[in-house]
Amino acid sequence: MTDWDERFAAGDYPREPEPSPVLRSYEPSIPDGRALDVAAGTGRNAVFLAEAGYAVDALDASREGLRIIGERATEEGIEERIEPIRGDVATYGFPSEAYELITMSFFHTLDRFADLAEALVPGGYLFVEGHLRSASATPSGPSDDRYRFAANELLRAGLGLTVLYYDETTEERPDDRRRATARLLARRSTGGRQSYPPRPPEDPGGE
């Protein structure tokens, strides 16, 4: 049993974490189809996207996390729209041009970024959020800065795509565990003239 299996089994990690308000706000403007949730955990994005109508591949190395996703999907009646995939993100072979949407929340990997972009269909969307290095104390998230984005690091990683939304914020959470987060929404498209989805009327940066 891995450390994450133990954490999920012990309830040390939320069983039903909420998806990012940025993802939730922009999702209606993203085409329907097939989605991939990378490092799916207990289904933060996978369950939300399946409820929104996507056919979702939920990729994670943890059997326990995938079991919880399966339970949640059954409870919501969306089990036919989620495919659990047990695999290591570091070595997983992402298919080319397979997904309208790929999401990855709070899993730090930049060396697979090009592979994630390649797995998008032309015009497909990539949403990534992760912990951010901060000069202020941020007890939520990893203690080692190696697993946090430096300032603008996630933005630079996405510059091969069309960046539609980017922010770096510090959030005060209900459990008093302050969290610094970077969020990127980008589209696999190029060219000097493009169409852009309207920004949602409510600020998606807040919880």
Rank of each mutant, 00 (worst) to 15 (best):
residue 35 A to I: 06
residue 36 L to A: 10
residue 37 D to S: 12
residue 37 D to P: 13
residue 37 D to L: 11
residue 38 V to A: 06
residue 39 A to E: 07
residue 41 G to S: 10
residue 42 T to M: 07
residue 42 T to Q: 13
residue 43 G to M: 06
residue 43 G to W: 04
residue 44 R to M: 01
residue 44 R to V: 00
residue 44 R to P: 05
residue 45 N to Y: 06
residue 46 A to H: 09
residue 47 V to R: 00
residue 48 F to Q: 02
residue 49 L to Q: 07
residue 49 L to M: 14
residue 49 L to I: 12
residue 49 L to F: 10
residue 50 A to L: 05
residue 51 E to D: 12
residue 52 A to S: 15
residue 52 A to C: 14
residue 52 A to L: 14
residue 52 A to Q: 15
residue 53 G to T: 13
residue 53 G to I: 14
residue 53 G to Q: 13
residue 55 A to E: 13
residue 55 A to Q: 14
residue 55 A to M: 06
residue 56 V to K: 08
residue 57 D to Y: 04
residue 57 D to F: 03
residue 58 A to D: 10
residue 58 A to L: 04
residue 59 L to K: 02
residue 60 D to W: 08
residue 60 D to S: 10
residue 61 A to R: 13
residue 62 S to R: 10
residue 62 S to G: 12
residue 62 S to A: 14
residue 64 E to W: 00
residue 64 E to H: 01
residue 64 E to C: 05
residue 65 G to S: 11
residue 67 R to N: 12
residue 68 I to K: 03
residue 68 I to C: 01
residue 68 I to E: 02
residue 68 I to D: 00
residue 69 I to M: 09
residue 70 G to I: 08
residue 71 E to F: 08
residue 73 A to V: 08
residue 73 A to L: 08
residue 74 T to I: 06
residue 74 T to A: 15
residue 75 E to W: 04
residue 75 E to I: 04
residue 77 G to Q: 08
residue 78 I to F: 11
residue 78 I to A: 06
residue 80 E to S: 15
residue 81 R to E: 11
residue 81 R to P: 02
residue 83 E to C: 13
residue 84 P to G: 08
residue 84 P to E: 08
residue 84 P to D: 07
residue 85 I to R: 15
residue 86 R to N: 01
residue 87 G to N: 12
residue 88 D to Q: 13
residue 88 D to F: 08
residue 89 V to Q: 06
residue 90 A to T: 09
residue 91 T to Q: 10
residue 91 T to D: 14
residue 92 Y to G: 09
residue 93 G to M: 10
residue 93 G to A: 15
residue 93 G to K: 08
residue 95 P to Y: 03
residue 95 P to C: 02
residue 96 S to Y: 04
residue 98 A to T: 13
residue 98 A to P: 13
residue 98 A to W: 12
residue 99 Y to S: 05
residue 100 E to H: 14
residue 102 I to H: 08
residue 104 M to T: 08
residue 104 M to G: 12
residue 105 S to A: 15
residue 105 S to D: 09
residue 106 F to G: 05
residue 107 F to L: 06
residue 108 H to G: 03
residue 109 T to N: 11
residue 110 L to Y: 00
residue 112 R to W: 01
residue 113 F to P: 04
residue 113 F to R: 02
residue 113 F to V: 09
residue 113 F to C: 04
